[in-house]
Write a protein that binds this DNA or RNA. Structure first.
Lengths: 169, 169
DNA sequence: TTAAACTTTCAATAATTATTGAAAGTTTAT
DNA sequence: ATAAACTTTCAATAATTATTGAAAGTTTAA
């Protein structure tokens, strides 16, 4: 395989991978492009490399910066904005976990808690008890997952993997 | 809140939650309905409860059975098929992890490995080295995540959480 | 067999989500 | 203040994904 062929394959695959996990294809592709680019890239560079529109590029670069996966940087003598990708995959992982935990797991925890405040009537006493118990069990697992992810996304790599390795042996 | 209002809220939220993670809304809603139903339900019961078409219901029930989140069961004297939901959230979690790991993580591992077989030319020696190194680092993290998920999805609950609790303390 | 009861399929359609690109907005240099 | 260089927005459009429902397929009972 050629280098450029390999790069393209990686970008396309990363895009599809994102798609399966609720991250839009362009955003994942831009991220992939930055993972394999050592130089700073401008919005136009990204537009050219991936053949996508200015609006699309701008929007997704913004989101990647918000997620902490890209950094805005300046080039001396250039007025244009440039960006650099975070290359450390452990850090990338931690940041993705943080954002998605906040955006998606926490709202569910909120609902699971709310939904347990039901007024019980004489006619549905048993049913209510069972429903609450089931919500509680989902809440418990979600809370444990949430704690784990919080810990994981704040942990320093060595310490974390050292203990994790005992687990996965 | 009323019991039925709470049930509906849970079903809708679970549907949206699924949507954010690349699982279609109907499938997640059907799953939610089974999580809070003690009785066996038929395709028609699900159609009625969620107001969705026969085809949609059939297709998503099939997938849920494939994933191991629903079981097909018979009711004596009834010719119709009935289904029962797996209620144990730990088991549900393990099964979801297994399916998605196979469907989405493993293809990425495949690509990451493929993409490292590049023929180096004199003109791009350095660039090729860097690209390979970056692919390797992504592959390493992905392999670790993969091992962890495999372990987690085969673990028995008590043993697993006991060690995990030390981590998340 | 036959036909009723039930399940599955799939082409058509609807709903959702992503993308474009031109116009509006902003910043900087002079 | 002006205008060139650059960034952002957003209504229109395209692409993707989900859903419908009728027709085809299958199973069962008599």
């Amino acid at each position: 395989m050629e280098l450029n062929e390999a790069k393209d394959k990686f970008i396309q695959s990363w895009g599809n991978f994102g798609t399966n996990w609720g991250i839009n294809k362009t955003m994942a592709q831009i991220h992939a492009l930055f993972l394999i680019s050592d130089e700073l890239l401008s919005t136009e560079d990204v537009m050219d490399a991936l053949q996508i529109s200015r609006g699309n590029t701008n929007m997704n670069i913004r989101t990647l910066v918000d997620w902490g996966l890209l950094y805005k940087e300046s080039k001396k003598g250039e007025r244009k904005e440039f960006f650099r990708g975070e290359k450390d995959m452990w850090l990338v992982g931690k940041r993705v976990i943080k954002v998605r935990q906040r955006q998606e797991l926490e709202p569910v925890l909120q609902i699971l808690s709310e939904v347990q405040n039901i007024k019980e009537t004489k006619s549905n006493k048993e049913e209510t008890k069972k429903f609450k118990a089931q919500m509680k069990s989902i809440e418990d697992l979600s809370l444990s997952a949430n704690s784990f992810l919080t810990k994981a996304s704040n942990a320093d790599e060595n310490w974390f993997w050292k203990i994790l390795m005992k687990l996965i042996k």
